[in-house]
Design a binder for these strands. Sequence first.
DNA 1: CTAAGTGCAAACACTTTGCAAAACG
DNA 2: CGTTTTGCAAAGTGTTTGCACTTAG
Lengths: 155, 155
Amino acid sequence: MGHVEVIVKAGKNHRQDSLDRALAGSGFRMTRQRQTVYDSLMSRRDHPSADEVFSRVKKTMPTISLATVYNCLDKLVECGLVRQVNRDRDSTRYCANLREHGHFYCRECGSVHDIDLPSSRPSELGLAVPDGFTVDHLDVNLRGVCPECGAGHQV
Amino acid sequence: MGHVEVIVKAGKNHRQDSLDRALAGSGFRMTRQRQTVYDSLMSRRDHPSADEVFSRVKKTMPTISLATVYNCLDKLVECGLVRQVNRDRDSTRYCANLREHGHFYCRECGSVHDIDLPSSRPSELGLAVPDGFTVDHLDVNLRGVCPECGAGHQV
DNA sequence: CTAAGTGCAAACACTTTGCAAAACG
DNA sequence: CGTTTTGCAAAGTGTTTGCACTTAG
């Protein structure tokens, strides 16, 4: 029990350190709201929308507003701690996994899963990018059915 | 001149045939609006938003409404003649290129370019999709700077 | 004829903004 | 203390919907 405590605390301190550093690095201030939003994202590594983050954060900080959640999320994106994940016209989702990765969207349940990329360089994926194009960012999305939803259908 | 005429006419007839067939195949009716919207998409192979399609189509059909353009585009997507292209929260764009391909978005000018994919199967792109996932669709997006915009910067 | 499609305006969901009050450094 | 950030409500954007009128088959 004491052991678990230590790990959790260490995890949280480390988390807070990166937040502190990242905010400072981009010239932003540390606020209770930003910390709470970031904690919420880091503690559950799913892909919540701003509204879902709002709901979660309201439990520990009932006075926070949705606009502030958007604001905090934007700042976290700006300082590079969080990635935005867009799936068609759905609400933007937020992802605290900074590893280069793509996303799998389940057509049935709407869940989002991270998919590792072998490389972030288009040429290594066999993509034929014509001369003259400079590629900054590669975004790979898969659609289909996740194991939970597929199980029912395929016997 | 006569030659060009013939080609253009043939192109248009072929185009109309596919539209006829695709609509019929999905149980939709042919309308002047759908034909005009489809022609507009096919004649300029760029990636216009619904609003841009609306502007273009209004020139030849001034009474058409934006809602109808959305409606027509949706039907064209449903019968498989057109693909939707979403870039973050931007307006949905529409693409009449049915070859399997990805898209390159220029950060500077916002232009969209088609990028050929070597395969539509994730495994052939080296993507590690965990067991149990069924993949229907693969969507690859690149961000960066296109040749026109890049030229100025890199001397 | 009659079901499907159009055109309009109003509704919608998600996101951003303007501004006074509060809080960080 | 001076800025930055918050919280609220209001505006904005892209898209969809409800409904009377029109049209394709």
